[in-house]
């Protein structure tokens, strides 16, 4: 049996079965298979959890991107004399006109009922940082998911090999029994 360390986020690596006979203690094939099955369930559990996180991040990133886009647009109009003509959403099916004079600051919703005023530069910097960190986390989650998949594949191959070995052993036993009778 060969051990590898886990991945950077501490997901343990699956054991690899080098020699089936040595790996199955006292010929307990069923127990070994059950153990592998348990391992797979644990990996699947982690997988479900990570998939949820992934979905969350995948919706968060475009959200930040949209806000950043608007901030950059406001920034590009910062020194213009003309107000910006917009239509904005009041409710799902209701839009209103607004004319926005060139501005140097925006208020960003930080969550927890807090809104804070930022200069356009600060806002774009904050949003860029947030976007970058969301994308980095997303990448890590993807890495973790790939790693999990690899571990599941390893265990599946282990199971197939232990199972095959069991079949082979039974056949040999049967053949031996048949010839002695």
């Amino acid at each position: 049996m060969m051990e590898v360390e886990g991945n950077p986020r501490g997901i343990p690596a699956a054991p690899f079965v080098d020699d089936v006979a040595k790996f199955v203690p006292d010929g307990d094939y069923e127990g070994t298979l059950r153990k592998f099955q348990e391992m797979i369930s644990k990996y699947r559990f982690m997988e479900t959890h990570l998939l949820q996180r992934k979905a969350g991040l995948e919706s968060k990133a475009p959200e930040i991107k949209k806000t950043l886009e608007m901030v950059l647009f406001l920034k590009s109009k910062e020194d213009s004399d003309e107000p910006i003509a917009t239509e904005f959403e009041l409710s799902d099916t209701l839009w209103a006109r607004a004319s926005i004079p060139p501005t140097k600051t925006v208020n960003l919703w930080l969550g927890a009922n807090v809104m804070l005023e930022y200069t356009l530069d600060e806002a774009s910097e904050l949003l860029s940082t947030k976007l970058k960190s969301a994308l980095t986390t997303l990448e890590q989650v993807n890495e973790d998911l790939e790693f999990l998949k690899e571990q599941i594949t390893t265990v599946e191959v282990n199971m197939a090999r232990v199972y095959n070995d069991d079949v082979r052993r039974r056949r040999l036993e049967k053949d031996a029994g048949g010839s002695s009778a």
Binding site: T67, E69, M70, F73, A85, T86, E87, F88, E89
Partner: peptide
């Protein structure tokens, strides 16, 4: 004629 262009969640002329 100005174009209403979507930026973020709002339309801008």
């Amino acid at each position: 004629e100005p174009v209403k262009y979507r930026i973020g969640d709002a339309y801008v002329s």
